[in-house]
Design a binder for these strands. Structure first.
Lengths: 344, 344
DNA sequence: TTCTCTACTGTGAACGCTCACAGACAGCAT
DNA sequence: ATGCTGTCTGTGAGCGTTCACAGTAGAGAA
């Protein structure tokens, strides 16, 4: 009496052979059913599917990968220093969105952290050895060596946010930072604010540069004098927002609004303003960017620019899978949206 | 003239065969060097290593997995509903810690999200088919069907926090919640507080239950009357902390302290107290739990109980790998630490 | 010497799958 | 009849690795 599949005994899982025997067809036919079902008669297909159900067969991806050369998995690569990963809520929603979008295609996601030089080397080897078919890259800072390495190795790659200094021919998906900034500054002007300070993001990131550019454009269009003295830059962290607001208040006590390039920094700005005795929004209006949880958590809640993170992640996955499928790299720019809350 | 490895041409990566030829030994010897180097002469080992360096050889994990039956990867499985994943900063540090600890063993981490029933089924199939060697499970709520399924399928499993209602024989790593709660309540008593309210976590989670138990124990030891009226429960979210504090103030206006089972809820408590015109810590002291970034971000900054997340993640990985290696399941309880800040 | 033991090495044979190929059969035109 | 086309099916080969096994050589014991 042979041991059955039931509880108790760890049994060798069914192979494509078992399914073929069970269905009364050959391995080849089962394989064809598994891979799209072309050139398979309806009767055979039905028999195979029934056999798969009966045996509980699941394809062995290692065997498949060994011969196809594909791994049917993609990497989610984070090259940020740790603190950013912790502090920035955007990473979470991006990671979650990508995982789900990939799961819909039955593609597992490998999380990869390249903080140190050592990790970077190991991960590069892993990726270029073909253990993933493509990479979703999250790294805002420029000159990322791993990005260029991967690109040169011909690994399908999609970046989140426009990579700078890496040349073209690399796919990316980004929100329309400049347009979002324009919306916010126009909104502040519409509230009657005229003395609008800025806390920018790091100026070696596209977000930092573009959001500042949008601010300048709208000011110019409105005929408001641009004053470099009320432009300070931060690093997207809460603390840098706080420090930035202090510098702004110091230089321009008559400030009546601040446009902050991230919600997290805006939280810091709120703290500094409160400490300085300014009321928000009565004395100073504050506009954030991202519409992260920090925006609603802040008090007063932040007027901000929503980045469409759900769409960003699904587009990243779409573009990456297309590229793995042989299509050319592509850039996707997604619109943002002004969300009005208490701080303006 | 054959195409070289240089830029431009995608070339077939070197195999163990190529390395063997280059080193002047057999496949078997190369394989032995790759797997620990036992029964290999120093000369041969050196020749092989040199050949590996020259050829840029990287082992093909699919081929290896096909024959060993191991996948040399583990899954990080999240069964929480979405909002918790987003809001709770602990997940981030846990995920990061696990990824790094695994990377040190050259084991990739697959991120798996089982929110819907559909996802749950697909992921169960994936895991039980042997596509990962083990699972790191993050799911605080009890009666998780996936956990029991995996356990019954014999998949090595390590939970974060003690799983309830799943029977024994499942490994877990947890902070000493009860002891942490005891420390905090003792601290509040030492500050002269006597009317100490509680906002607990969900009472179907070990954290929720244990932290409340610690509170009751210390009160009893100190001879302070336990008053069920000033015990309310939340769901670890900020909003539930806010609501909880309102209920507490309503029932006990003479409250002089609140022990909150998470920093995030404690933020909500601070908001509610401020709105009610209570000063923290002068009128009411607030103690949190977790020592998450929320603790320092809050104003006033939160006195809290640090959970050793870095150790939790590294222990989870250690126990999981041991179990994959054939060891028996194990439970690990790690000590917590009181961190004093402005709120008490 | 001869035997035994240990350290080391090479050689099929798998692992489970896909791919290329060849063959069978039907339908339709020649 | 013959050929051609298209759909469908089975078969052998091979992907890159590990594992079991057989075999060699050198050291030490009898």
């Amino acid at each position: 009496m042979t041991m059955n599949n039931g509880a108790g005994g760890r049994r060798r899982p069914p192979t494509i052979h078992d399914v073929a025997r069970e269905a009364g067809v050959s391995r080849g036919t089962v394989s064809r059913v598994l891979n799209g079902g072309h050139y398979v008669s309806p009767a055979a297909a039905e028999a195979v599917n029934a056999a798969i159900r009966r045996t509980g067969y699941v394809v062995n991806r290692h065997a498949r990968s060994l011969i196809t050369g594909r791994s049917d998995s993609v990497g989610f690569l984070l090259t940020e220093p740790q603190e950013r990963f912790f502090e920035d809520p955007n990473f979470n929603v991006l990671l979650r969105g990508c995982t789900q979008a990939l799961a819909a295609h039955d593609v597992p996601l490998l999380l990869m952290l390249a903080g140190t030089e050592d990790e970077r080397r190991r991960i590069t080897r892993y990726i270029t050895a073909g253990h993933v078919d493509g990479v979703l890259l999250v790294s805002s800072h420029s000159g990322d060596p791993i990005a260029t390495e991967l690109r040169e190795a011909g690994v399908p790659l999609v970046a989140c946010g426009k990579p700078i200094g890496i040349g073209s021919k690399v796919s990316y998906v980004a929100a329309d930072d400049r347009d979002g900034a324009r919306d916010m500054v126009r909104h502040l002007l519409a509230q009657g604010r005229r003395r609008i300070g800025v806390v920018t993001g790091p100026l070696d990131t596209p977000g930092g540069v573009e959001r500042l550019a949008g601010y300048r454009e709208v000011l110019a269009e409105a005929g408001v004098q641009y004053d470099e003295g009320i432009v300070v830059s931060g690093d997207y962290s809460r603390a840098s927002g706080e420090a930035g607001a202090e510098r702004l208040l110091d230089r321009a006590p008559d400030l009546d609004a601040v446009f902050v390039a991230s919600d997290l920094m805006a939280q810091g700005v709120l703290t500094a303003l409160r400490r300085a005795g300014r009321r928000v929004p009565q004395d100073v209006a504050v506009g954030g960017f991202d519409d992260s949880p920090a925006a609603t958590a802040a008090s007063p809640s932040l007027t901000t620019i929503r980045q469409p993170w759900d769409r960003i992640s699904s587009e990243m996955v779409r573009v990456l899978l297309a590229q793995i499928g042989g299509e050319e790299p592509a850039a996707v720019i997604l619109p943002t949206e002004l969300v009005k809350r208490e701080s303006t």
